[in-house]
């Protein structure tokens, strides 16, 4: 680990000002991702700004009738917050499907958005990686890519965004509140993360001087018919091979509105609005779900070890929509059993 200086920010404006000084300055929130990356010499900031003392830990009603999640509220506090559990249980479920209780106690909502890929090669300095070292090449494309992406990949990078929470946020059409030196802006969730293209070193669209202050959940109610289905190599404490956040509003058996987002398949939480449109007005049947699932993976591309994800994603979409329809977010006794 490199030596670095450490300062504590007391106000958002000051934090933003300090951050803009150099791209070697980093915010530290829970530290659960950043510290690991520093120990592995992947991130080498010269300066850390501790943002834990900024007044951004609130979870409160938003002016638009939704809920505002402070960037520094922990993943645990968010998942177990009564309003989140009542109005956005999909989000609770997604958060609780991730990491471990200890990690969720430290991890913040802001930090969760920024967690970096779990691509093996990104983590190993002995191998080339375009995301870590632009232009050095992508080892994963011709290497062991079982856990990597099938949608929106590029010739430069096939990494996935590993978050569970963000998949639910994408499905719920959250917005991200961001403050920079030029003031505040609001970013739609689907525009927050990006596809790798030929600049995979950038995971998201945040500017270097910006800080996330909050995440806004819109007022819409998906609290009855929802499901977060996470498929992984062990029952808990593993990243998703494929995860699906599904949310429906039903009129009897007819879908009024449907939401669908996938994790573990792309460089960003993968929300497919065309597929969502295909749900609207349709009966909530397996047949409908299969058609929608086929649409989602229409342009998917498998690599040497991860082609199975295409079929797995389809089946997971069908299962998640079925569970959402039945109002049984978890039908399988062993799923997501780590709250």
């Amino acid at each position: 680990m490199n030596s670095f200086t450490y300062t504590r920010a007391e106000a958002v404006e000051a934090a933003v000002r300090e951050k803009s000084a150099s791209d070697q300055v980093k915010f530290i929130a829970g530290g659960t991702n950043l510290l690991d990356l520093m120990k592995e010499n992947i991130e080498r900031p010269t300066r850390l700004i501790d943002i834990n003392h900024l007044p951004l830990t609130q979870i409160e009603a938003s002016p638009e009738g939704g809920l505002r999640l402070g960037a520094l509220a922990t993943n645990a506090d968010t998942a177990w917050h009564p309003e989140v559990e009542k109005r956005y249980p999909l989000l609770s479920q997604a958060i609780l499907a991730g990491a471990s209780p200890q990690l969720r106690n430290m991890a913040t909502n802001g930090g969760n958005l920024f967690q970096r890929t779990r691509c093996y090669y990104f983590y190993d300095l002995a191998t080339p990686c375009n995301k870590r070292e632009p232009g050095s090449g992508c080892s994963a494309i011709g290497g062991y890519n079982r856990i990597l992406g099938i949608l929106g990949t590029s010739e430069s990078c096939i990494a996935t965004h590993p978050s569970d929470m963000c998949v639910a946020l994408a499905a719920l059409a959250a917005t991200v509140r961001v403050t920079g030196q030029n003031g505040e802006r609001v970013v739609k969730f689907e525009d927050f993360h990006r596809l790798p293209g030929d600049t995979p070193q950038f995971d998201n669209t945040l500017q270097p001087d910006e800080i996330v202050t909050a995440i806004d959940l819109p007022a819409e109610d998906f609290s009855r018919n929802f499901s977060y289905l996470k498929l992984r190599d062990r029952t808990s404490y593993a990243f998703a091979l494929v995860s699906v956040a599904a949310a429906l509003q039903l009129d009897g058996n007819t879908i009024r509105e449907g939401r669908l987002a996938l994790g573990g398949v792309a460089h960003k939480p993968w929300r497919d609005q065309e597929a969502e449109n295909m749900l609207r007005g349709q009966p909530a049947t397996e047949d409908t779900f299969r058609r929608v699932a086929a649409k989602v993976v229409e342009n998917a591309r498998g690599y040497s070890h991860n082609t199975f994800k295409i079929e797995l994603a389809k089946r997971a979409i069908v299962r998640a929509l079925k569970q959402a329809t039945e109002g049984q977010p978890v039908t399988e006794a062993f799923q997501n059993s780590n709250p």
Binding site: R118, Y120, Y121, Y123, D124, T127, G143, Y144, I147, D233, R234, T235, S236, Y237, A238, F239, F334, S337, N338
Partner: peptide, 15 residues
């Protein structure tokens, strides 16, 4: 390539 505990999987209690 999976030379760490995050990606070299062994069972957890839930398994």
């Amino acid at each position: 390539m999976n030379h760490n505990y995050a990606e070299y999987h062994i069972p957890v209690n839930a398994d």
